[in-house]
Amino acid sequence: MAHATPKRCRQAGCGKTTTERHGYCDTHADQASWGKFQQQQRRKGPRVYTTKKWQETRDHVSALAKCLCINCLTKPQRVVKSGSVCEHIVPVAKGGTEQLTNLSFFCNSCAKTKTGWERTRTVDEILKRYGHTAINLHL
């Protein structure tokens, strides 16, 4: 197995070399914050979108929407476009739930537009603009 090439320590002004992945010599190894970041991520618990329950919910919503973007279908000038993203209408961070009344199926462009737009909006504004896309309304 090949050995790593020694590189200069990432700490400003340090002339020592290291082969550690974090890039700091033994003296400055405490500067490597990646381990702290990983510990914080573990404390937060499992990621929602990688759980089996969410994957089943996403597949169910996709089947109900027949893999079509509900947002594009409900625009005044109706467009039939393939969807690929199961989207919370009201984000979980703003009090949204995992119920069908808060889920929709969007194409990538609609999902990106919605996600960018909703960052600075209230729950009422989000519901006014996207509430009609709830999957339970289109069953």
Rank of each mutant, 00 (worst) to 15 (best):
G45S: 09
Q39M: 00
Q55E: 10
S62C: 12
N71I: 03
L137F: 09
Q31C: 11
E56N: 15
T74G: 01
L139D: 10
N108K: 13
C69I: 00
T97Y: 04
T113E: 11
G45H: 07
T17E: 14
A63M: 11
G13C: 08
I135S: 01
K114I: 02
L100D: 11
E98T: 11
P76E: 06
K75Y: 06
E118G: 03
F37T: 15
G116A: 10
K94H: 04
S62N: 14
P6W: 02
K66M: 06
C14D: 00
W117Q: 10
I126D: 00
G95I: 04
L103N: 01
G13S: 10
L103K: 04
V90R: 00
T51I: 08
V80T: 03
A65Q: 04
V48G: 08
Y130Q: 04
K16S: 14
Q39Y: 01
Q77I: 13
K112N: 15
K114W: 00
E87P: 00
A134V: 01
W117F: 03
A4H: 11
A134R: 12
C69P: 04
G13H: 10
G15V: 00
N71E: 13
G131L: 09
G23W: 07
D124R: 15
H60G: 03
L68K: 14
L127M: 13
Q99N: 07
K52N: 14
H60P: 05
H60T: 12
S33H: 01
G116N: 12
T133P: 03
T122Q: 03
G45M: 06
L64S: 04
G131V: 02
C107S: 07
Q11G: 05
N108V: 12
K66C: 04
V90F: 06
L139S: 06
M1N: 15
A32D: 14
K53S: 12
K36Y: 07
S33G: 11
K75P: 03
L127W: 10
R119Q: 15
R78C: 11
Q38D: 06
D26P: 10
R121M: 08
S109I: 07
S82N: 13
K7V: 15
P46Q: 09
G131W: 08
H28P: 08
K81N: 13
A63V: 08
P91I: 02
Q55L: 13
L137R: 10
V85R: 05
A4Q: 07
I89P: 01
E87A: 14
A29L: 09
V79C: 05
A63I: 01
R119M: 10
S84G: 11
K53V: 07
K81Q: 14
W54G: 11
